[in-house]
Design a protein around this nucleic acid. Structure first.
Length: 850
RNA sequence: GCCGAAAUGGUGGAAUAGGUAGACACAAGGGACUUAAAAUCCCUUGCUCGCAAGGGCGUGCGGGUUCAAUUCCCGCUUUCGGCACCA
């Protein structure tokens, strides 16, 4: 019983010697430095292209089949561009600081550098085994001091520009492990390692002022050729909203509460206010008789995990502070409540509540018996539900009868006149918390001096090396392991020379990936992070391919750094990545019981009729598509695929599966189909006579159509349809007795970007002594791609009744006559009245009858 | 809940300035070769009624626009991805 549906291996049975071929040509490319590029001035600007892959984190589990998908796509594109006369920069490297290596170090005591470099070696071997045309002389890893020296240097530029500041901000804290946790270490509100509920704890952090760039990060999105969905995600993440800030005086206190609202026009309906539990005025607002209850509430909130606090389904909670604010439009005294549905991180941390027209405010008002006043004419009773649609203003004094925009404008003008409010803009985007209390990251190159304050290291003192430590455990105080090394922490101030202490925080993993694309341009420069001239030669990145999981954070952070560098005059472009393509995820098949639980693939049998059963119980299972995961035993290992079928099959199959951008399930059976195709190609050249006998006009047409389709599709990254067309050509060639040399050469050239090893080998067997890497892409003759006849479809009332082959460009009246003369058509129009006749040249004739 | 993407044969997918639905491949079936099997080559293959000729149905579901809808419009359903009370 085979398990084809579960991706069992199917041993190939043929002679196509992919192992020897692939080893031979990989060695050839390496020896000849075939893909090393220089800033050659003979290429004009428009013939220089920078094609970038998102570099991988070298994890211990090795390359996933998802990695080669994007890498193959860019590789094909690069090889295609080179054959079309472009100078192509195509580098690869490793994003090698990061949590898994550190956690492994904590468990085993192995230095993260050792595991990381071992993993890099494995990744490099795996990537090279696929024959990608990277310029390996430019390889970089973010954890090396040659690299992070410049990451630190860029940080100093940000610091000197006033874009870095210290702030106490909450982090995820595990009381048991005595350590801060990254978001990805928090699973369902609990510590991933020990299961303890995660609490929030304030800690001193370095923060970068990305919000200062919010508007530009938003506006410049319009200039980018990125997927609309990614642009939209970034837009929503930045979350610009226009509204007004309004001041509410607090009754009996010499203080005001400022709120941000997008609907100042509903101010007459504001019946209470809410401040976030972390709001700085909470203490002052709380009156003596409410003190106990407020404190109990604050305590309760502090002990809630983020999960509990942000659970949308939960009941609203809150407590009355005892204080009242004055609604500026009508002088009403309205109660001030404290509730955790108001976030300190957005707006001012305080809101005016308009329960009649806001879901959340309505729920809260109902629960605590607060008044609900309709101010927008509603189609429902606002006492029974919130009315969140538009309506003309009622109960709103000078706004009555007005629509939303007009009322809003009038209200803001009214507030401005009295100094009670003004237009305001708010962003969801928050400043970027940039420090981590970790070992395996770039040390932040700052020193805390008792006399000079916090100062940056001199640039000549970079790199600030990551010191050796004896233990990778966090310090237990929330500080990084670096804080435990007195000899490292105690230093001298770079300004006054007096005793000072080093910053012990390290940078987040994002730091290295924020600028790596610039370092590839000039990776061995010891004087600058990148030379001006080289930067101008290559930037911006023309095509950037990677997973959609980086749609927001990495791409937003990198854009932010790039804009800062641009403002400092250090890079020439205002955006780093002109065109972005997200490759889809490669999923796998999984097997589902009727209760929707999944069964690991190795416990499934496929029956003769193609259905699947659970081996132990014999129950029928449904085949579904799921992410590859270790627990489901449906992970495909690229090494095994390359061993069994070769790198060329792997490359071409991943491109043939479907469009690059969509997610698609891996099927080893499908891979075998591509393997068979390559084997057919091989035998075409090795088992047939190659001669110069003239080819038939039909075959010549297929050849030119193929050149055209493969050229256009490859340029558009539509690889699946390009491959299909090459298969059509090969099928046609199999109908011939021998192989025309020129046609054979053309096919090899078209195959070259897709299956470079096989193509090089065939090219050599055809007698060429130079590598395909310098060959010229074939051109097509448009005249030879045009068909002489077209299939005319005859429809009666929109239904296809007959088809004929007719000469191209047949005049409409002749086409119509042809249709009317058609026997089958006549049968359908016989005895009926023709009411309309539609002729589409070379396509169809539609006769409408009654 | 909100935002986004998608839904086409047994399977992956092709085709949209509206004009032959199912290219190419997998799987399945048949044939050739073979002592036999594998490999290879050739053929068939959306469903359905029919001996056939031929007909009917068919691109998630329900409507609409049109001579003509996978494609455009309105309303749903489901799946996947992202975000989490954003005032």
């Amino acid at each position: 019983m085979t398990l084809t549906g579960a991706n069992a291996m199917i041993a190939p049975m043929s002679k196509y010697p992919f192992r020897e071929i692939e080893q031979k040509w990989q060695a050839y490319w390496e020896k000849n430095q075939s893909f090393a590029v220089t800033e050659d001035e003979k290429f004009p600007k428009e013939k220089r292209v920078y094609v970038l892959d998102m570099f991988p984190y070298p994890s211990g589990s090795g390359l996933h089949v998802g990695h080669p998908e994007g890498y193959t796509a860019t590789d094909i594109y690069c090889r295609y561009l080179r054959m079309n006369g472009y100078n192509v920069l195509h580098p690869m490297g490793f994003d090698s600081f990061g949590l898994p290596a550190e956690n492994y170090a904590i468990q085993t005591g192995t230095h993260p550098k050792i595991t990381t470099e071992r993993n890099i070696a494995n990744f490099r071997r795996q990537i090279k085994s696929l024959g990608f045309s990277y310029d390996w002389s430019r390889e970089l890893s973010t954890h090396t001091s040659d690299y992070y020296r410049w990451t630190q240097w860029i940080f100093i530029q940000l610091f000197n520009k006033g874009l870095a500041y210290e702030s106490n901000t909450p982090i995820n804290w595990c009381d048991n492990c005595k350590t801060g946790l990254a978001n990805e270490e928090v699973k369902e509100g609990r510590c991933e390692r020990c299961g303890t509920a995660v609490v929030r704890r304030n800690i001193r952090q370095w923060v970068l002022k990305i919000t200062e760039y919010a508007d530009r990060l938003l506006e410049d999105l319009d200039s980018l050729e990125w997927p609309e969905s990614v642009k939209l995600m970034q837009k929503n993440w930045i979350g610009r909203s226009e509204g007004a800030s309004v001041l509410f005086h607090i009754d009996g206190l010499d203080e005001s509460l400022e709120v941000f609202t997008t609907r100042a026009d509903t101010l007459f309906g504001a019946t209470y206010m809410v401040v976030s539990p972390e709001h700085p005025l909470v203490g002052q607002l709380t009156t003596a008789e409410n003190k106990e209850r407020v404190e109990a509430y604050l305590d309760e909130v502090a002990h809630k995990s983020d999960l509990e606090r942000t659970d949308l389904a939960k009941d609203k909670t809150g407590v009355f502070s005892g204080s009242y604010a004055i609604n500026p439009v009508n002088g009403e005294r309205i109660p001030i409540w404290i509730a955790d549905y108001v976030l300190i991180s957005y707006g001012t941390g305080a809101i005016m509540a308009v329960p009649a027209h806001d879901e959340r405010d309505w729920e809260f008002a109902k629960k605590f018996g607060l008044p609900i006043i309709e101010v927008l004419k509603s189609e429902i009773d606002v006492q029974t539900a919130a009315w969140t649609e538009d309506g003309v203003h009622v109960n709103s004094g000078f706004l009555d009868g007005l629509g939303k925009d007009e009322a809003n404008e009038k209200m803001i003008a009214w507030l401005e006149e009295r100094n009670l409010g003004k237009t305001a803009i708010n962003y969801k985007l928050r400043d970027w918390i940039f420090s981590r209390q970790r070992y395996w990251g770039e040390p932040i190159p700052l020193v805390h001096c008792p006399t000079c304050g916090t100062v940056a290291l001199n640039e000549s003192d970079l790199p600030l090396l990551l010191p050796e430590v004896t233990s990778y455990e966090p310090s237990g105080t929330g500080e990084s392991p670096l804080a435990k090394i007195d000899s490292w922490v105690n230093t001298t101030c770079p300004v006054c020379g007096g005793p000072a202490k080093r910053e012990t925080n390290t940078m987040p993993q994002w730091a290295g990936s924020c600028w790596y694309y610039l370092r590839y341009i000039d990776p061995h420069n010891t004087q600058e992070f990148v030379s001006r001239e080289k930067e101008r030669y290559w930037m911006p990145v023309d095509l950037y391919v990677g997973g959609a999981e980086h749609a927001v954070l990495h791409l937003l952070y990198a854009r932010f750094w790039h804009k800062v560098l641009h403002d400092l005059g250090l890079v020439s472009t205002s955006e780093p990545f002109t065109r972005l393509v997200n490759q889809g995820m490669i999923t796998s098949y999984a097997f589902q019981r009727t209760d929707k639980s999944l069964v690991p693939t190795d416990l499934v049998d496929e029956k003769e009729d193609g259905t699947f059963v659970e081996r132990e119980t014999g129950d029928t299972l449904e085949r579904v598509i799921a992410k590859m995961s270790k627990s489901l035993k449906n992970v495909i290992n690229p090494d095994e695929i390359i061993e069994e079928y070769g790198a060329d099959s792997m490359r071409m199959y991943e491109m043939f599966m479907g469009p690059l951008e969509v997610s698609k399930p891996w099927s080893t059976a499908g891979l075998v189909g591509v393997y068979r195709f390559l084997d057919r190609v091989w035998r075409l050249y090795t088992e047939r006579t190659i001669n110069d006998r003239e080819v038939s006009p039909e075959l010549l047409k297929t050849v030119h159509k193929t050149i055209k389709k493969v050229s256009v599709d490859t340029g558009n990254l539509d690889f699946n349809t390009a491959i299909a067309q090459m298969m059509i050509l090969v099928n046609d060639l199999y109908k011939e007795e021998d192989l025309n040399r020129q046609v054979g050469e053309t096919l090899v050239l078209l195959l070259a970007p897709y299956v470079p090893h096989l193509a090089e080998e065939l090219w050599q067997q055809l007698g060429h002594t130079s590598s395909l890497t310098t060959a010229t892409w074939p051109t097509w003759d448009e005249a030879l791609t045009v068909d002489s006849t077209a299939t005319l479809v005859f429809q009666v009332n929109g239904k296809v009744r007959s088809k004929v082959e007719a000469p191209m460009g047949l005049p409409k009246d002749e086409a119509l006559a042809l249709a009317k003369a058609d026997e089958k058509v006549q049968k359908w129009i016989e005895g009926k009245t023709v009411v309309r006749e539609i002729v589409v040249t070379d396509k169809l004739v539609n006769i409408v009858v009654k």
